[in-house]
Design a binder for these strands. Structure first.
Length: 599
DNA sequence: ACCTTAGGCGCG
DNA sequence: AAAGCGCGCCTAAGGT
């Protein structure tokens, strides 16, 4: 029986069966890659790559080896095949794209920069002194995204390591320094309050860095023809230069006529607002949802214009020119780009591919897309975190919200159940979900209590932590200053700031733990895909990942095995995070020719 | 001529 | 049907 009437750790969540899943392999040998250390090697050359072997505790196994840049890729391939090490480097994104371009893939790594960021802020390592010692130039935060030059659609990867100004060039850290940092990190994990969870998180994060580079290398198979056909259908023929497409211009003309504003530029919110007011349409903003409430002949063409204009500017011909090359869409994924552990992206809007154009993402002939997403991931993660037995019972089926409604919540209305639960996770205060919160709290005190506690901790300036140990940033100095004030006016501002931070931390524990789960899912799936035998056409490849959704491009013969791997990996991720608990994390899997056919 | 911010909207 | 979380990217608008 997994449910006991009161208190304590009611579910057995310890004893993650790490041996069943090889995400974390402690027996793996580490090989540190960095610059040859001039002091030790006496070469004085920064061109050489130094390679240090260590055992699983970070103790050097034998002497260093210095590799020539020109022969590096070949040497790494041989070592990878013979020794299956865990490669250690400062930043995966500095090494791996070039290795992939040279045809070298590695099984696993330890990304010192990403792991450093986690360990520095994690509450689990607060007592280890790691944070105080980690302030070293090589482990500094990556520069802000705006400071980085935008990448072209397909980075020129012809020449391996021949760019002296490249990231693995002159600023490469000495391997001996990196080894020292690795040992500090391993020690921090050992001394932490949850070594098992943290080592899992570091392994998953590092695997994510490998996967991000591999996905950018592979790209999403993308049909320019299909995309252009969609654009022509919605917008008309491709315009010359920077003109509006035909159908967009026609809508603009209609709008000008209906509003009696012959010079109106509908792209200008200010002009649009004035024209709407002159026509007697009293809106406070020009947002679509507000316009939808209004009955006026201008509304329909305006909404249509906005929709098409969005398609044209965000994912039109210019987007195709910039981001699709050689039949592949190659966005850049930024692992560690979101504090919650989600990935960010840069270029091409990879996290916002609109439904309108998803038909252009299509499998090669003889191949399929396997599109899988975790059903209602965040609510299920909350159930597991909070160990809410009542809600777990509602989560037995495939549809958690229907299960909650079936337990009588909201008068059995599924939409109300969904709204209330998501509202609790996001911190809604008004509207229907706000009104339903008391009932939700009465019915599921543990689940609601869990996010309420996180909100309370954040509002008082505290830090909260995900299941595997990723902690949110502390409040800024300005936030803390604002909290003790005397004037009533400033106190209201301070309270608003406190509530805002509360909503952030409330959501952080759920979104971040869901990201923990997804990272393990993805890493385990990659491991299983790599273990599959190659088909004559090639082997399955991960081509896309979006928070709780993955896409695999695979030869048809491999499809059943891929589907099985997707599902097994989801089950494995659950056990890795929570052990054997009575909560399922079902994935819905679609085998399709194009992305739009999936849900 | 550039850079930043705001409004708006796409995705989860 | 929309407020409450996390993002990126577009244009217009308001700076310097």
């Amino acid at each position: 029986m997994w449910s006991t009437p009161h208190g304590g750790d009611r579910w057995r969540t310890s004893g993650c069966p790490l041996h069943t899943v090889q995400l974390v392999q402690n027996e793996a040998m580490y090989i540190v890659l960095g610059a040859a250390d001039p002091a030790q090697e006496g070469t004085g050359s920064r061109e050489g790559i130094s390679l240090l072997r260590t055992d699983a505790s970070g103790t050097p196994a034998d002497g260093t080896e210095v590799l020539d840049r020109a022969t590096l890729a070949g040497a790494l391939r041989r070592i990878e095949e013979a020794e299956h090490p865990r490669w250690v480097w400062d930043r995966t994104r500095d090494w791996y794209p070039e290795l992939l371009a040279a045809g070298v893939a590695v099984e696993r790594c330890h990304d010192l920069t990403l792991c450093s960021a986690i360990l520095r802020s994690s509450e689990f390592t607060a007592g280890t002194g790691y944070a105080a010692n980690a302030e070293r130039p090589v482990m500094d935060d990556p520069p802000p995204l705006q400071a980085l030059p935008a990448l072209p659609a397909a980075p020129d990867q012809d020449a391996l390591f021949d760019d002296p100004a490249g990231p693995s060039g002159a600023d490469l850290a000495a391997a001996t320094d990196l080894l020292e940092e690795l040992r500090r990190q391993l020690e921090a994990v050992r001394q932490s309050t949850h070594p098992g969870r943290l080592s899992l998180l570091l392994a998953a994060e590092s695997a994510g860095a490998l996967i991000a580079a591999e996905m950018q290398h592979a790209g999403v198979p993308w049909s320019t023809d299909v995309h252009e056909a969609v654009l022509e259908e919605y917008l008309g023929a491709r315009p010359a230069g920077y003109q509006r497409p035909e159908k967009l211009e026609a809508l603009a003309a209609e709008l000008r006529a209906v509003l009696g504003a012959p010079a109106l530029n509908p792209d200008s919110p200010q002009e649009l607002m004035r024209a709407l007011h002159r026509a007697g349409i009293e809106v406070k903003t020009t947002r679509s949802w507000e316009l939808q409430q209004v009955h006026h002949p201008a509304v329909a063409p305006l909404l249509r214009y906005k929709k098409l204009s969005r398609l044209h500017t965000a994912n039109g011909w210019a987007w195709l020119d910039a981001w699709v090359d050689g039949g592949r869409f190659r966005p850049e994924y930024v692992v560690g780009g979101v504090v919650s552990g989600r990935w960010a992206s840069r270029g091409g809007g990879a996290l916002q591919i609109p439904r309108q154009i998803r038909s252009a993402a299509r499998a090669d002939r003889g191949w399929k897309l396997i599109v899988a997403d975790a059903a209602q991931l965040e609510p299920r993660v909350l159930v597991a975190l909070a160990q809410d037995s009542t809600m777990a019972a509602a989560a037995r089926g495939k549809d958690l919200y229907a299960g909650i409604a079936a337990q009588g919540f909201g008068g059995g209305d599924r939409a109300k159940a969904k709204g209330a639960l998501l509202g609790a996770i996001y911190g809604a205060t008004t509207g229907e979900s706000g009104r339903l919160l008391p009932e939700l709290t009465r019915t599921y005190p543990r689940a609601v209590g869990y996010v309420e506690a996180a909100a309370k901790e954040g509002a008082r300036g505290g830090v909260v932590t995900t299941r595997l140990g990723r902690s949110c940033p502390p409040p800024s100095e300005r936030w803390r200053q604002a909290q003790h004030t005397t004037s009533a006016e400033e106190q209201r501002r301070a309270d608003a700031l406190a509530r805002s931070r509360g909503r952030f931390t409330r959501n952080f524990v759920v979104q971040g733990s869901a990201a923990d789960w997804a990272a393990c899912w993805l890493a385990e799936l990659r491991r299983r895909l790599r273990a599959m035998p190659a088909q004559p056409e090639g082997r399955p490849e991960l081509v896309f990942f979006l928070h709780d959704e993955v896409m695999v491009h695979a030869p048809e013969e491999a499809v059943p095995a891929v589907v099985e791997a997707v599902e097994a990996s989801a089950a494995a991720a659950k056990e890795l995070l929570f052990g054997r608990i009575p909560v399922e994390f079902p994935v819905s899997v679609a085998v399709v020719d194009s992305y739009d056919q999936a849900k």
